[in-house]
Design a protein around this nucleic acid. Structure first.
Lengths: 131, 131
DNA sequence: TTTCATTAGTTACTGGTGGTAACCTAGATA
DNA sequence: TATCTAGGTTACCACCAGTAACTAATGAAA
């Protein structure tokens, strides 16, 4: 009776995807993750070594870089190739699946970029109004 | 010399947006947030009261609902209207800014939905390979 | 032969935050 | 007097993102 029917396109946001909702959530969380999408962006240009990525991603720690790359690898968005050399060499590259994610992320990133100042202003107003 | 030039469209993901990078980051983080986009999706159909939202968003606690709505309000994505009645009545609605975010989020959500099973399989393979 | 440098990490620790359960307010109702 | 309602707040705990420091293995340098 009081049950509302969601628009079909919104359903994916509210009710759930075609698979496990928890996996779905974790994918969205990965997009919002501080480092993940930055790394995917960097790897788009070609394979990179651990130290290169660490240098490009200024501010990231070894632990966070390892952790983020491992998660991306686990999801199949990034590939890791290890060479048995001394000193060790490891190359990371983005997979086709990872590449296919980029346009969608770019859309969000561009919205965010376009509205960053507006939102910053909203926050200032809100905080200022808090008497 | 060895400096690589990023594609301009990727720049927004790696280097930064047109505004404060921290604000930009926090916007991406909000998209990845467990509840935020779900609430925006629900409010798209029209204004909702606190208790309605709590019932629709199964699993959320009062504290988390308050907190998430406050953040969305602070960013200017959601509006809060309070009526001086007893018992109190509060209505939340999505703003134009909030509405403008939806298509971009939908693109991500649809990618996630389409690849949920593939990624779940990748994770199983990865975990199984961990000897 | 004792250092040092290099690469790709790991380990111990800590602060912030997501989440639960219990409580609060003010008036109407029984 | 006790209970119900709506829309929260408070006290509390557990987990996890993030930092700083350390490590393994080897070749080169002194």
């Amino acid at each position: 009776m009081s049950e509302q029917v969601h628009e079909p396109r919104m359903q994916v946001m509210c009710e759930g995807p075609r698979g496990d909702p928890e996996v779905f959530r974790s994918i969205l969380a990965r997009v919002g993750d501080k480092w993940s999408m930055m790394l995917i962006g960097m790897l788009q240009e070609g394979p990179r070594r651990f130290t290169e990525l660490k240098a490009m991603t200024q501010g990231i720690s070894s632990r966070m870089l390892t952790q983020t790359l491992r998660q991306l690898e686990r999801d199949g968005l990034v590939e890791r190739e290890m060479f048995a050399e001394i000193p060790p060499r490891v190359e990371y590259s983005v997979t086709d699946l990872g590449r296919s994610l980029i346009p969608a992320v770019l859309a969000i990133a561009e919205w965010a970029s376009a509205h960053t100042n507006e939102i910053a202003a909203n926050r200032e107003d809100y905080d200022a109004a808090a008497d």
